[in-house]
């Protein structure tokens, strides 16, 4: 069993060094395929309902692009730092991994804080879950993404803490790799949210 070598020299690409690791990586890619359908369905629903404001606030009246731009910047930067963590993983440098992941988590928390602020602000402006079909679709799509970010933050913190005890092994390496993959996926989804929800939301009313 490859486990025997845990304390010996770590192989290259440690995340795929064992069959378990390979299985996890493949399984996670497939899981992300399912997640794509999940978000695809949410996007389709949102696009169908985005102009149904039901007399409540519309996206044009509501969206604050400055705030969204900052949030986008934070999340995209965190995507880059998570790549740095994966690169460090391939160099088998646990300290660097921890450093880059810490930055990733901080940026993610910043994003989440902005999103929560944004939601609270919208609710105060009169856009509640039950206001209109648009509001339901907006909170659901963006909220689903936000929940993914929150879960990702908790997951990465958990991995970081347990790695301080366990070190970098063929068991922990795939976990770091997957967390980074997951974080990328969340960023890609955000790019679509930024485009479909916010950018199209600013001009939507004039077209539709």
């Amino acid at each position: 069993m490859a486990n025997h070598h845990a304390h010996a020299v770590l192989p290259d690409e440690p995340e795929k060094a064992t069959l378990e690791g390979k299985n996890k990586v493949l399984g996670f890619w497939l899981f992300l395929g399912g997640e794509t359908v999940l978000f695809g369905s949410l996007f389709a629903t949102f696009i169908a309902l985005r102009d149904q404001a039901n007399g409540g606030p519309t996206s044009q009246a509501l969206f604050d692009m400055n705030l969204v731009a900052v949030a986008t910047l934070l999340l995209l930067t965190s995507s880059m730092t998570s790549v740095m963590a994966t690169l460090a993983l391939h160099k088998k440098d646990l300290k660097k991994i921890q450093l880059w992941l810490t930055i990733t988590v901080i940026l993610g928390l910043g994003f989440l804080a902005l999103e929560i602020y944004e939601f609270v602000h919208y609710v105060n402006e009169g856009l509640k879950m039950s206001t209109s079909a648009f509001s339901s679709a907006f909170y659901t799509l963006v909220g689903f993404h936000g929940a993914h970010v929150a879960f990702g933050i908790c997951w990465i913190i958990l991995l970081q803490l347990s790695a301080t005890k366990k070190g970098l092994t063929v068991v922990t390496a795939p976990k770091f790799y997957l967390a980074s993959l997951y974080w990328h996926f969340i960023d890609v989804v955000w790019v679509f949210i930024f485009t479909v929800v916010y950018l199209m939301g600013m001009i939507g009313g004039k077209v539709g």
Partner: peptide, 18 residues
């Protein structure tokens, strides 16, 4: 579930749902 439990309007035509 959101429509039934949390007042969502996805499928409620009276509030713009479809």
């Amino acid at each position: 579930m959101f429509d039934r439990l949390f007042g969502g309007n996805f499928f409620n035509p009276d509030a713009g749902g479809n």
